[in-house]
Design a protein around this nucleic acid. Structure first.
Length: 573
DNA sequence: GCCGTTTTCGGCCCGACTGTTTTCAGTCG
């Protein structure tokens, strides 16, 4: 099994955990955590970088020592330092540290005093009331530990952005009933439009005598109040989602938005700029000595750092600070730039509505065009189209077009890429279409070599225009295909094949880092919904969010173009 | 362990809340 970036990150995080329990130098520990984040967030495979002879110490936070350690981990899957630490301290303790409220000190104490190593040990010790007598612990801590163990059993780590939206929007509406509220905004990874969110951060400003914290903790969906203070409270909803509310003064709202939008990595980078300028930056503003010199808006904060405003989706410390300094930030795509949807299903296969109904809904969205892309014959469970039924659909679209004056209906298909890399329908019928979306739906477990060759070979077919949901992943459900994405993107650039950003919140495929590397390689992308219902047409916002996280501008996405220009991109020589 | 317009040593981001103890350490974000 090849060693992936996440494996390297995990080894470093485990080393950091165990060093923390040992009460080692905190900055050394931070170095390991920083390195874990750097490697974990890399868009390229670190083992490939090594193969290409790249110097890993050029990466931020990676020096000579850690570069060497990374090579060892890539070769062996672990590192002697971790193995040595595991001799001293049971590695299970690093798992205990993931419980809310349990840090290195508490974990060390319960291990040293009670020999507790696992969740199971911890539960037993708590149930036998052995925890409460330890120094620094008490009855409440013991009770909290039991509750946390209970909570951990339900798998609730991160929520898809769409799920979080469904839970948080009614909460926001409810909070807005407070009359003394001046403003209420969601910050955090939700605002950065990350594909999954761990919790929700809400910021509010209020007039005097506002009771927003009471309102907040008394919401009907609140399962547990974790903390409640004058300026900050945290609750867990019945769904398991944690929501934090911060009340901030108006003069500090921008600084707080910046601080709580994150990411942590971006904030650290900006704060370092502040330190260099002899300023102090925190959630209350930018300070010169004791004087607040900025903080009402985010723009003010960036101004003081001599930076232009940086869009939330870019704030991951993946080069946006450097780009901002150079004045080369991307002019990010917006939902309004989208001229049409190029991946829509109908009742012919597994869609729920007729072509007419889907087209009408697309027209009502103001689109200039919409493509009907049903499945091909291989997808029997969806009643995929054979050549005969596809031709019937083409005829129906031609007739239907006469009734729609304001929207062009594009004839297309989501055709399967078969195991041998050929397409699931003959060229004679594919050439009658305006373009094709080609996707992998079967044989998902091929080796990287075979899977990559399969997709590369499909691109040799001049009728292939778009690679649909390229990685095939389903968030939280299915791993991505084992593909050499760089090879595929390079060939796509050469062959004028476009990669899809599938907007479905379960897919969001391409992911953000692939969008960015695709842009760097020079491919043009497409943002589509893969709609199976009328309502699904509204999912476009998630795909646009992902594209923005991937630094994409309107010029990088071809369905921002009117049909006349778009159709040129479907010509292959 | 990393890093450098303070460059090979001596720094390294910062504040709120909780629980336990009684002035603060630990944890979190």
């Amino acid at each position: 099994m090849p060693v992936h970036n996440n494996d390297v990150a995990e080894v470093f995080n485990k080393i950091a955990d165990l060093l923390e329990i040992k009460e080692e130098n905190q900055f050394r520990i931070r170095a390991y955590r920083d390195a874990a984040r750097t490697i974990g967030g890399l868009s390229k495979n670190v083992s490939d970088l090594i193969d290409q002879g790249r110097d890993l110490s050029e990466l931020p936070g990676i020096g000579k020592d850690l570069a060497g350690k990374i090579e060892t981990i890539v070769k062996t899957g672990t590192h002697p330092l971790l193995e040595d630490l595991k001799e001293e301290i049971p590695e299970e303790l690093s798992g205990l540290m993931k419980l809310q409220g349990m840090g290195p000190k508490k974990v060390a104490a319960i291990y040293n005093e009670l020999g507790v190593k696992t969740d199971k040990d911890l539960r037993k010790a708590a149930e036998e009331h052995k925890i409460r007598d330890l120094e620094g612990f008490g009855e409440t801590t013991e009770k909290n530990i039991l509750e946390e163990l209970e909570r951990r059993q339900g798998d609730h780590k991160r929520y898809k952005l769409s799920t979080a939206e469904q839970m948080v929007n009614p909460y926001i509406d409810y909070l807005k009933n407070e009359k003394k509220l001046k403003s209420l905004e969601i910050a955090g990874s939700f605002r950065r439009r990350k594909e999954t969110v761990g919790d929700i951060d809400i910021l509010a400003t209020c007039k005097r005598g506002c009771e927003i914290m009471d309102q907040f903790t008394e919401y009907e969906d609140v399962e547990k109040v974790i903390s409640k203070g004058e300026t900050r409270s945290s609750v867990v909803l019945k769904s398991g989602l944690q929501v934090d509310l911060r009340l901030v003064p108006q003069v500090a709202f921008g600084a707080a938005m910046h601080y709580f939008t994150g990411s942590k990595e971006h904030n650290i980078a900006v704060r370092k700029i502040a330190v260099k300028k002899k300023y102090k930056l925190n959630e209350y503003g930018v300070f010169k000595g004791d004087d607040r010199i900025a903080g009402k808006t985010e723009k003010e904060v960036y101004d003081k750092m001599n930076l232009p405003f940086i869009q939330p989706e870019l704030r991951e410390n993946r080069g946006e600070i450097e780009a901002a300094k150079k004045g080369s930030l991307p002019d990010l795509i917006t939902l309004e730039d989208i001229c049409g949807d190029l991946h829509v299903h109908s009742k012919y296969t597994d869609g729920r509505y007729t072509i007419k109904e889907m087209v009408k809904a697309a027209e009502e969205k103001g689109y200039e065009y919409v493509a009907i892309t049903d499945h091909s014959q291989k997808v029997t469970v969806a009643n995929g189209l054979n050549p005969k039924r596809l031709r019937k659909q083409i005829e129906e679209i031609d007739k239907l077009q006469e009734k729609f004056k304001n929207i062009r209906i594009l004839k297309s298909i989501e055709v399967d890429i078969l195991e041998n890399g050929s397409l699931d329908l003959p060229d004679e019928v594919l050439k009658e279409l305006d373009f094709t979306v080609c996707s992998v739906h079967y044989k998902l477990n091929l080796s990287q070599k075979k899977q990559t060759e399969r997709v590369l070979k499909a691109m040799d077919n001049p009728h292939m225009n778009i690679l649909g949901h390229p990685s095939g992943r389903l968030i939280h459900e299915r791993k991505p295909l084992d593909l050499d994405m760089e090879k595929i993107m390079k060939k796509a650039a050469k062959e004028n094949v476009h990669l899809e950003i599938n907007s479905h919140p379960d897919r969001l495929d391409l992911n953000d880092t692939h969008c960015k590397s695709g842009k760097e390689i020079g491919i043009k992308m497409v943002i589509s919904t893969d709609a199976h219902t009328i309502d699904d047409l509204n999912l476009m916002r998630f795909g646009v969010g992902q594209a923005r996280r991937g630094w994409l501008e309107p010029k990088d996405v071809i369905n921002t173009l009117p049909w006349k220009k778009l159709k040129k991109h479907f010509k292959r020589e």
